[in-house]
Design a protein around this nucleic acid. Structure first.
Length: 845
RNA sequence: GGGCGAUUAGCUCAGUUGGUUAGAGCGCUCGCCUCACACGCGAGAGGUCACUGGUUCGAGUCCAGUAUCGCCCACCA
């Protein structure tokens, strides 16, 4: 073994992150071996964090957990493929760019190569810029953020190979997204359709089923009378009276005797005077409201079902901007048409007030509206309720309309290994509950465009059913800027010419391809890493990211994208709520790293069990920091006694190494099963017992000379070395620091410790024996309020014969450690524990 | 309404095929400057294991039900 010349006089944790992250980078400690074959590789399909301002505290939590597993696998000899991605593609980036530079995207504009953003941005008077200019600004802003994120992750000690970094808006990701889409199209897994779609009026884009969330909002039941043929009013209740002009029918349950006489007959809408049929459908709930409902095109998704299944006409009134369309729908009476003019152009909220006033005037509003709180569908990133509008969109088949495909995807979920196992149920719930295909087109600017153009007929109308596809070798393409094969630029937008598809893909359409993007689909790298070994991610995006990745891989490769899903929990506020963005940003991850140190923050993360939501707890970070400090100091002590490679001969020393072999076994098994927490616990528990009992008891012997002393120093060095290796995945900085004091090379490139290289034939009970005796002696001194150095005249041990033998074996160490003059042995029964120790302290202390 | 998870000391949590008197850390109290560590060391107090039944020689652990909390899903007029 080497010398300990590099050991500092006063070890400290300060500065370890800067120093070692720099050296790891210089020495390419975590570089992937590009020549490795798939069977040697442990590949990680990293979650690309959203690049928008600051990383959330919760993000570092999950990444630190994954890194512990990655480091373990690397020490095990696997070639770890650990890239990092940045999700800079999507709405959050767009919104940020608009505010940051004071611009807005106008796709009709031409690219301006000389454009520079204003020195003093004024988001209220946003400057219109072309799509290429806008995208350039997005890339510029995210590049700055990504640099800051990388710095943070390096400081956290993530053992990422930074040369493998990717972005979801970069050329590579755009090309992969477009290529995958073209394959989907060729296979028939992608199709276009014009249909009612959930629509966000703020972002003016369609949104997918997976992006919905319900929020409770105040509303009111309005009781409204429709006019029956016999003059009797038919009362319905609605929370959306503004949709009255869009009403196309009333509906009740087929078995509802109250309304059965009306089925097949017509009623007239109040105020607007449209004649609408009364129809029957089993989805109508007799218990809800008055038991009969108005069907509008479209108020909610049930309306869509009714409209489709009952083949009702369309009377659309809400536009894509959330305002009522300027022209009245068909079927209104003359008076109704006049009434509509009063509300045309109003927002749905203003229209609601206006129509309620009209109903009140006409006497068709029965009673006063009754306030309620009810769930309303929102786009998860939006803040206004979704509307439903009819539009042409692209869809990917995901099993939502195909039983066989759904069964196959459920089977993929069963094939995948889950940590923790119960998370599989979330996947199955979601897949089982799908009711539509995956809507992948978005009416946005900053995203991956569809690599498509459409021919224009003589009237200039696009022929959507026969798109012109881009050549795969030319990807990525921007159909707004580039010309399809066989056309010239001056044919754009003219009859008989072409038009580029204006939309971009859903962010998940790109994210679902992270294995292909990171793994270099189409190059030799891909076969070395795919299917990936593990996908780490949060449980909230099982329905989106995990599922959509399975869909794409199943369709393209007929396999799972990975073997293992490693699901991490969330960070909760101390009050048990999911830590909000705003609170999460009060304490930034960098603040935590500066205040507590990376090893301490990692310790906190690693003590959060797989998949379990964990409280944000700086107390746990303090514990981690204490542990890191202890590693420094204990190492300094062990190395200070002088490292020996003599044989370990003393029974107590052999007991130590035998117990340590058991710890190695447990930690290894736990990490193999992705249970990093259990591995850390086993190591940590042993380490504290090692410091408090073993080290304290052998101290005197270790400072001595001779064979018994050599044995102690050899055992200390072996134990220290093994413990550093066991801690290395969790506390990469402090273990590397200590390793550097006396060993060459990085601790992180050492082999994982082998239990068989330690000892198996020692008697670990000896450790329990010294712990019990030492504890009794300490207690006596503590109760006498004396220093632990105080002298003991006589220590009387009562125990059974076997235990007494064990005490005799370690008596010399115990006597030296406890300053004990004499030990007496009494064979006899013990009330509790393994022995009784009576302590007679020396007088006059 | 359906599904998943949780409920153990003031707080954060262990407790893996059921087995003596339920553990740890933090916090608290009391000591100790013990030659690695005062960012330390030692000792102590503190729990009817959410509730109700059941299985068993034996239940924190298994079964059934109840309650509370959290998350996901659902056709929320």
């Amino acid at each position: 073994m080497s010398s300990t010349a590099r050991m500092p006089e006063k070890p400290t944790l300060e500065g370890l992150e800067e120093r070692w992250s720099r050296i790891w980078d210089e020495q390419r400690t975590y570089a992937f071996d590009r020549t490795a074959s798939r069977d040697q590789v442990f590949s990680i399909d990293t979650p690309p964090p959203t690049v928008s301002g600051s990383l959330h505290v919760g993000t570092v939590f999950g990444y630190a957990q994954v890194d512990c597993v990655a480091r373990f696998r690397r020490m095990r000899g696997e070639r770890v493929f650990y890239p990092m991605g940045w999700d800079d593609n999507g709405l959050p980036t767009e919104r940020r760019v608009q505010n940051y530079y004071g611009v807005r995207c106008d796709p009709a504009l031409a690219y301006d190569p000389d454009f520079a953003p204003p020195a003093e941005p004024d988001p209220k008077n946003a400057i219109p810029v072309s799509r290429p200019n806008f995208v350039a600004l997005c890339e510029r802003l995210t590049a700055t953020d990504e640099q800051a994120f990388e710095e943070l992750f390096r400081r956290l000690g993530l053992s990422v190979d930074w040369s493998l970094a990717y972005t979801t808006i970069g050329d590579r990701a755009r090309a992969v997204s477009q290529r995958a889409f073209l394959h989907d199209l060729a296979r028939g897994d992608a199709y276009t359709a014009e249909a009612p779609t959930l629509w966000d009026i703020t972002f003016r884009t369609a949104v997918a089923q997976a992006e919905l969330e319900d929020r409770d909002r105040p509303g009111a039941y309005h009781r409204i009378g429709f006019h029956g043929a016999d003059g009797e009013p038919v009362l319905i209740e609605t929370t959306r009276p503004e949709l009255l002009p869009a009403c196309v029918a009333l509906v009740a349950h087929p078995d509802d005797s109250r309304y059965r006489p009306l089925f097949g007959r017509s009623v007239t809408t109040p105020v607007f005077g449209a004649e609408v049929p009364v129809v029957a459908h089993p989805l109508a709930d007799p218990e809800k409201g008055s038991g009969i409902a108005m069907i509008c095109t479209f108020g909610d998704t049930t309306d869509v079902v009714w409209w489709r299944e009952l083949a009702l006409p369309t009377r659309a009134i809400v536009g894509r901007d959330g305002r009522l369309l300027p022209d009245p729908p068909a079927g209104l009476s003359d008076k109704g048409t006049a009434a509509y003019e009063e509300v045309a152009g109003k927002t749905v909220f203003a229209a609601r007030e206006a129509i309620v006033a009209l109903l009140r005037d006409s006497g068709d509003l029965v009673g006063e509206p009754r306030p309620i709180t009810h769930p309303v569908k929102f786009f998860e990133k939006g803040d206004r309720p979704l509307e439903i509008v009819t539009s042409r969109q692209w869809y990917l088949r995901n099993g939502g309309r195909d039983e066989a495909q759904r069964e196959r995807l459920l089977a993929r979920g069963a094939e995948l290994s889950w940590s923790p196992a119960y998370m599989r149920a979330r996947y199955e719930n979601w897949v089982g509950g799908l009711n539509s295909d995956w809507l992948v087109s978005r009416q946005r600017f900053f995203g991956v465009p569809f690599p498509l153009w459409y021919r224009l007929d003589d009237a200039g109308t696009p022929l959507y059913d026969d798109p012109i596809t881009a050549d795969e070798s030319a990807l990525p393409v921007d159909p707004q800027a580039e010309v399809p094969p066989g056309f010239t630029a001056d044919q754009r937008g003219v009859p008989g010419g072409f038009t580029g598809d204006p939309d971009v893909m859903d962010t998940w359409a790109t994210s679902s391809l992270t294995p292909q993007i990171a793994g270099g689909w189409g190059t030799d790298l891909f076969d070395r890493v795919f299917p990936m070994t593990v996908r780490p991610q949060g449980h909230d995006i099982i329905r989106t990211w995990l599922f959509s990745t399975v869909v794409r891989s199943d369709a393209e490769f007929g396999s799972l994208p990975w073997e293992q899903a490693m699901i991490n929990g969330w960070i909760l506020d101390p009050d048990r709520k999911k830590m909000s963005k705003s609170k999460g940003n009060v304490v930034t991850p960098m603040d935590l790293l500066v205040e507590h140190g990376a090893d301490a923050v990692r310790y906190w993360a690693a003590s959060g069990r797989p998949g379990v939501d964990t409280a944000f707890d700086t107390g746990q970070m303090k514990v981690g920091r204490r542990l890191a400090m202890k590693v420094l100091n204990a190492s300094r002590f062990v190395l200070g006694t002088g490292v020996s490679d003599a044989p370990v001969t003393e029974p107590l020393d052999r007991a130590l190494l035998t117990a340590l072999a058991g710890v190695v076994d447990r930690a290894t098994a736990a990490l193999d099963a992705y249970d990093y927490t259990r591995a850390l616990e086993a190591t940590e528990e042993f380490f504290w017992a090692f410091c408090d009992d073993y080290v304290e008891v052998v101290k005197v012997r270790a400072y001595d000379t001779g064979a018994a002393s050599d044995s102690a120093r050899a055992a200390l060095a072996t134990a220290l070395s093994t413990l550093l290796l066991l801690f290395a995945p969790f506390l990469p900085f402090v273990t590397e620091e200590v390793w550097s004091w006396w060993r060459d090379g990085s601790v992180h490139r050492q082999g994982w410790p082998s239990a068989d290289a330690l000892l198996r034939d020692g008697d670990p009970a000896l450790l329990a024996t010294i712990a019990a005796v030492a504890s009794s002696v300490r207690k006596a001194k503590s109760e006498a309020q004396l220093s632990q150095r105080a002298a003991v005249d006589l220590l009387t041990i009562t125990a059974d014969a076997g235990e007494l033998d064990r005490v005799r074996v370690v008596a010399a160490d115990l006597a030296a450690a406890g300053t004990i003059a004499e030990i007496a042995y009494v064979e006899g029964p013990v009330e509790s524990g393994r022995l009784t120790a009576a302590v007679t302290l020396a007088a006059g202390q």
